[in-house]
Amino acid sequence: MACFIVPAVEAVVTTIATKVVKSKEIKSENLEVGLDSKDIESVKEKSKIPFSRKLGWLGNLLWGGSGLLAFEHLWHGEVVPWFPFLTAAGNSADAAEMLHEMSTVGVGMAGLVTAVWIGMVVVSSALEKKSDEVEEQSEKSLEEA
């Protein structure tokens, strides 16, 4: 009925959060460059995937999913281009059913997408850590040689 609204709201929040995190990352990057451009640690930090990009993955998952689901609702006549835009919002019985669906299926959709994204972030962080360790080991072996 209107389950896509819940992930769509999360998508809006994610997009705002991405913009805020990105501006903070740019600010801190500029500070690092200003203080010590040859700092090895800062170079290592830059080789990692920035958190704003990881948030962008969640944004793409949520916007894509809720956008395509909105089309499905339009297809089934549940969303209309005139006020109140949702056919179920016309009477109280349908509205109650719609709110129930939003709180069950809608929240489930947002939750599953977020859980998958958390999994993606955990895996990518583990891979970054692993590549850092390999790099450190190769640096050590070069120093020893």
Binding site: L68, M109, L112, V113
Partner: peptide, 11 residues
């Protein structure tokens, strides 16, 4: 990511 998002939601 767009298609995966939609697939997860339809699941």
């Amino acid at each position: 990511l767009m298609y995966w998002g939609a697939s997860l939601m339809w699941m």
